[in-house]
Amino acid sequence: MKKTKKILSLILAGAMMMSLTACGGKTEESKSSSTETTTAQATTEGAATTGEKTADGKQYKIGVLQLVQHTALDAANKGFIKALDDAGLNYVADQQNAAGDQSTCQTIASKLVNDGSDLILSIATPAAQAVAGTTTDIPVLVTAVTDPAASDLVASNDAPGGNVSGTSDLTPVKEQISLLKKILPDAKTVGILYASSESNSEIQAKMAREAIEAEGMTAVDYTVSSSNEIQTVVTSMVGKVDAIYAPTDNTIAAGMTTVAMVANENGLPTICGEEGMVKAGGLATYGIDYFELGYLTGQQAVKILKDGDDISKMPIEYLPADKCKLSVNEETAKALGIDVSNIK
């Protein structure tokens, strides 16, 4: 009888060990699936474990909400992380990507707040609005936002007055339209392509209309409500405009290969808001460096976390003019039969 009890005890102990092992495996899998959302995300998480210990030995928890994956926003994210690493900050970054969906932005924003983040980085206007609307206590830095004040994120760009500050990606729209006119001196009508759901783009579209009219051309708006409409809308521009201007719009940037495919096949040159869009098939731009923009935001994060700076008194910062650069897609120019040698 005692022998039987001993055997039963051994079997029970073994079953308990198997149960504990299985539970541990599920926890690790859940952690992995929640953090490795994108390729860029996996890269920044690796960097997040390399920070040196601060004087008090504290490890900061930083939440990152990126609206969608595309070249410019990825670069801003990497620049932010590089600034933290260069400052020797001890931190862990919870990287999250909303894949361009506003409701997902809200869900992730709530998660980052509930997780007790010490600071949250929001990349692009919809992501910033989601986070800013979820917390008034946690410091929130924004980047890749054209005008934080106009997007109701801060009281004013000079004096935010709350828990939100960051950097603006206000692009040199006037100079970009001048570039368009220089490359295409005979252009009469320019189609402005952007997503109607992005306040960031509405601001740039207004600036573009003014600049286009100042150059003696006519501006016509062409908007999409989602990426699914890009091909149809760009096709509708054929024969009606002489060129396309696409600002730093996240929906258009993420779908730039589709824009370029239709536009280039139909002889429509596209002047873009940033370099990544040019690499994806656009003709040219004169724009900011998003890695440098993210780096500038990361320096703000260090001032808040390490130096104790008051975010409410931290003005929105802008990249200096010398951080803007000319980018030309030579292959696109050749395909369109356009000579770009006079703009270099």
Score class of each variant (00 low, 15 high):
Asn266Ile: 13
Ser165Glu: 10
Val190Leu: 05
Glu175Thr: 14
Gly191Asn: 08
Tyr194Trp: 07
Asn250Glu: 03
Ile203Lys: 12
Phe291Gln: 10
Tyr194Glu: 01
Val164Met: 04
Val238Arg: 09
Ala208Val: 04
Asp289Ser: 12
Val164Glu: 00
Ala284Val: 03
Ala254Asn: 07
Lys188Glu: 15
Met217His: 09
Ile252Ala: 04
Leu193Thr: 04
Lys174Pro: 02
Val173Thr: 14
Glu229Met: 11
Thr251Val: 13
Asn157Gln: 13
Ile271Asn: 00
Ser156Asn: 08
Tyr286Gln: 08
Ser226Pro: 01
Gly273Gln: 04
Met261Pro: 08
Thr248His: 01
Leu296Thr: 11
Gln176Cys: 08
Ala155Asn: 14
Lys181Val: 07
Pro247Val: 06
Val220His: 14
Gly276Phe: 03
Gly282Ile: 02
Asn250Leu: 03
Asp158Tyr: 04
Val220Gln: 09
Ala155Met: 13
Thr285Glu: 13
Leu296Ala: 14
Gln300Cys: 15
Ser196Pro: 10
Ala260Met: 07
Asn200Ser: 14
Ala219Cys: 10
Gly216Thr: 06
Glu265Val: 08
Val164Pro: 02
Pro185Ala: 08
Thr223Ser: 15
Ala195Arg: 04
Lys206Asp: 12
Glu275Asp: 14
Lys181Glu: 06
Ser156Asp: 07
Tyr290His: 11
Val224Leu: 05
Leu296Cys: 09
Met261Leu: 13
Thr297Phe: 10
Gln231Arg: 15
Ala260Glu: 02
Leu180Arg: 03
Tyr286His: 15
Asn266Gly: 09
Thr297Glu: 02
Ala211Val: 13
Glu292Leu: 13
Gly166Asp: 02
Met261Trp: 12
Ser156Gly: 03
Glu175Asp: 15
Leu184His: 11
Tyr286Gly: 02
Asp158Arg: 08
Thr257Tyr: 04
Leu296Tyr: 10
Pro160Asn: 03
Ser227Pro: 03
Gly294Thr: 05
Asp158Leu: 10
Ala254Glu: 00
Thr297His: 01
Gly161Phe: 07
Ser197Lys: 09
Ser197Glu: 11
Lys279Pro: 06
Tyr295Ser: 14
Asp186Cys: 13
Gln300Trp: 12
Ala246Val: 08
Val238Trp: 14
Gly166Glu: 00
Tyr222Ser: 00
Val224Met: 06
Met277Asp: 11
Lys182Gln: 15
Ala155His: 07
Asp249Glu: 12
Gly287Met: 04
Thr232Ile: 09
Val173Phe: 09
Ser226Ile: 04
Asp221Thr: 05
Thr248Pro: 07
